[in-house]
Design a protein around this nucleic acid. Structure first.
Lengths: 222, 222
DNA sequence: ACCTGAACACCGTTCAAGT
DNA sequence: ACCTGAACACCGTTCAAGT
């Protein structure tokens, strides 16, 4: 029983499902079962409809995924306290985006779709570009600097997410260990030297260290 | 007619297709039609066999993709002249890997599968880690430094490849333009300032600039 | 205007059987 | 040992029709 309050402006059959309901159900499926399990058919079943009804509200599956990303961004991206020091402002803005993405591994599929994943993220882009300009970069170089930070951040998310998925899936997990165990110290001396520490070293979260190094490097203009 | 020369050690039906033939055909399909078009069924048809025959030579599709990546790496990764200056060594090693990956966009699907995509790439990892150590970093910090460079490189490839795919697919291409055109200069002044230069600025290849900045930052130990 | 049923054109993979 | 046929359990999307 749909609410009979506001009279519909256009005639025709009243809608039984809405865009919002679709996104809500899709979000539930993705968080409960993973993005691989989100299919138009399953979504239709769980919402109590047919696959084709969905196509009346979203253009195709890709649009659905982008809507889901926007939904996540507006839902979880909260603007943090911004430090006055422009260099720290850059770091805080990048770290906030990074954390939001890291908490949401399914997003990787959609993430790389655009370089500013959602209009809700624009404010963070502004902070980074503005911070770089305040530190003395030209506007053009500041945009390039933002891109470098975005590459680094997106890469960290993608590599980490896929490594985690692989660990869950297992099988090839020991392959890398084998490679490192069989390393020839004459040909690859440094890798042989750190071979037994490789796994714990790469398991450490060094996003912030790398980010600070990158920002430092961008600001010491050559 | 398979070559009758070397007598087979094990008895049974002689193989009609080989791992090498599978990889070769798969490579052709991928370069001609894109990685999306590589299906076990199509591969079987093009090789003149049935889908199930493939599963006798590769475990599953994922293994096939990893084999394809290894094949590409050993086929195209040539070791460049390595400069004596360790900092330049890092830059050259990273740039070589980056170029190889950039020339091969389909690889993105497999790329993130592991943090050292192939044993053929280990020599480049060695160069980077060794260069960082020679510049004064501890072995542990050198590994972290390599990881940062890898995140940056992988991110650049992934973002660029997806942007290109999207451009080919079109449709949402103008969405970003619209967002930048409608930017509120009061809320996002820096972005509004560079809005009309955004597209050409982000189209520029600034991988090397960002890489140098990152390496510089990693080497000025804080 | 909104929804449904049936169908199209596919997937990766398993199983049991053939040679 | 290697390959085949048939089947299982799915996909996203289109088309024509119903209400």
């Amino acid at each position: 029983m749909p609410q009979p309050s506001a009279p519909r402006k256009t005639l025709g059959r009243p809608p039984r499902i809405s865009r919002e309901a679709i996104i809500e159900t899709a979000r539930r499926i993705v968080t409960e079962a993973g993005v691989d399990r989100l299919t138009m058919r399953r979504l239709a079943t769980e919402i109590g409809s047919t696959p084709m009804a969905l196509y009346h509200h979203v253009r195709d599956k890709e649009e659905l995924l982008v809507l889901l990303l926007d939904d996540y961004a507006t839902r979880t991206l909260r603007r943090p306290e911004i430090p006055v020091d422009p260099r720290e402002r850059i770091v805080v803005a990048a770290t906030t985006i990074h954390q939001a993405l890291a908490a949401c591994p399914w997003i990787v599929e959609v993430l790389t779709a655009d370089d500013l994943m959602s209009t809700s993220a624009l404010w963070f882009v502004e902070q980074i570009v503005d911070g770089l300009v305040e530190c003395g970069l030209s506007p053009d170089r500041a945009v390039h600097g933002y891109r470098a930070i975005w590459y680094y951040t997106a890469g960290e998310i993608v590599v980490r997410a896929t490594a985690a998925r692989r660990r869950a899936h297992d099988d090839r997990a020991t392959y890398r260990e084998q490679v490192f165990a069989d390393l020839d110290p004459n040909e690859l001396p440094r890798l042989a030297q750190v071979a037994d520490r490789w796994a714990p070293l790469t398991a450490q979260d060094t996003y912030l260290d790398g980010l600070r190094a990158l920002v430092d490097g961008l600001l010491t203009s050559r």
